[in-house]
C-alpha cells in the first residue's frame, strides 16, 4: 500500500515536471503579451500578467494592417486543407484497404516512401511549380499541395481495415450501391472517429505551417498568421510583446478546438493499438 503510494507520487512528479516544461512557453507567451518590451527583456523577466495588452495589440494592428485578414487566411486555408485531406485520404485509404488491384502493394509502399523525404526538400520545387501555374499569392498554392498526405492515407487505411469487414462492403454492393455510394453511405459514417483525429492533425499542421506560406506568399495581405508574425521581426528592434499578443491570438482557436475534442484525438491515436 505504502509502496504503491510512493510510486504514484513519483509518477505524478515526473508527469508534472514534463507538463511544466511543455507549458512554460505557453505561459510566458500569455504573460509577455501583457508587458512592454522593456519589461520583457529585464532580468528577471515578469512572471505575472501586466497591463500592456492593449498597447501591444495596437502596435500589432499598426505594424500588420492586414492582421485580421491574415487570421482569416489562416482559417480559410486550414479548413480547406482539412476538408480535402479528409476526402482524399479516406478515399485512397478505402481503395487501398478494400479493393484488389494490380500493383496495390507497390503503390502503397510508394506512398509510404514519400514520408521518408524531408518536407524541406520539396519546398523549392513546390514553389517553382506554383509559380509556373501562376498560383503564387493565392490560397490554393497552400491547400492543393497539401490536399492529401501519406500519413493520412496510412491512418485511414489502417482504420478502415480494422473497422470495416469486407462482407459489409459486399452487402452494400448487393443492396444496389454503386462504388461511390458504398463509400459515401457505408464507409464514411463508420470512419467518423478517424475523420475527427485526422482532421485535427491536419488543421493544426496547416494552421502552424510556416515554411509553406514562406515560399509561396509574398504579398502581406495573403500572409497566414505565422508568416505575418514573423514579419514583425527583423528590421531593428523586435516587438516581443506584440508578437506574443499575436501568437496568443493565433493559439486561441487551437486551444478551443483541442479542449472540445481532446478525448477524441487521444482515442483516435490509440484506436489502432487497443482495438477490441
Amino acid at each position: 500500500m505504502n509502496k504503491l503510494k510512493k510510486s504514484t507520487i513519483f509518477a505524478y512528479i515526473v508527469v508534472g515536471f514534463g507538463a511544466l516544461i511543455m507549458l512554460a512557453p505557453f505561459y510566458f507567451m500569455f504573460i509577455f503579451a501583457t508587458h512592454s518590451n522593456g519589461d520583457i527583456l529585464s532580468v528577471p523577466p515578469p512572471l505575472w500578467f501586466g497591463s500592456e495588452l492593449m498597447n501591444n495589440i495596437d502596435y500589432l494592428l499598426n505594424a500588420l494592417p492586414y492582421f485580421w485578414h491574415n487570421v482569416g487566411m489562416s482559417f480559410y486555408i486550414a479548413i480547406i486543407t482539412t476538408a480535402l485531406n479528409l476526402l482524399f485520404c479516406s478515399m485512397a485509404g478505402y481503395a487501398l484497404a478494400m479493393y484488389d488491384f494490380k500493383y496495390r502493394n507497390v503503390i502503397f509502399a510508394f506512398i509510404m516512401g514519400t514520408m521518408l523525404i524531408p518536407p524541406f526538400l520539396g519546398m523549392i520545387p513546390t514553389a517553382l511549380v506554383m509559380k509556373y501555374l501562376g498560383w503564387l499569392n493565392t490560397p490554393k498554392a497552400l491547400y492543393i499541395p497539401m490536399a492529401c498526405g501519406a500519413m493520412g492515407i496510412f491512418m485511414m487505411k489502417q482504420f478502415i481495415t480494422s473497422a470495416i469487414p469486407k462482407e459489409l462492403i459486399e452487402a452494400a454492393r448487393m443492396d444496389g450501391c454503386n462504388e461511390f455510394s458504398i463509400y459515401w453511405r457505408v464507409v464514411v459514417p463508420l470512419i467518423k472517429p478517424a475523420f475527427g483525429t485526422l482532421g485535427l492533425i491536419v488543421f493544426i499542421g496547416q494552421w502552424n505551417n510556416f515554411m509553406g506560406p514562406l515560399v509561396v506568399m509574398n504579398d502581406m495581405k495573403m500572409f497566414t498568421i505565422p508568416l505575418a508574425l514573423r514579419s514583425l521581426q527583423g528590421t531593428g528592434m523586435t516587438p516581443w510583446g506584440a508578437i506574443c499578443a499575436g501568437a496568443a491570438i493565433a493559439v486561441i482557436p487551437l486551444l478551443i478546438m483541442f479542449t472540445l475534442s481532446s478525448r477524441r484525438l487521444i482515442d483516435g491515436l490509440t484506436a489502432g493499438a487497443v482495438k477490441g
Binding site: 462482407e167 459486399e170 452494400a172 457505408v186
Partner: peptide, 9 residues
C-alpha cells in the same frame, strides 16, 4: 444474400 457475419450496417 445472407452473409455468415450477417454484415448488418
Amino acid at each position: 444474400m445472407v452473409f455468415q457475419s450477417y454484415a448488418l450496417y
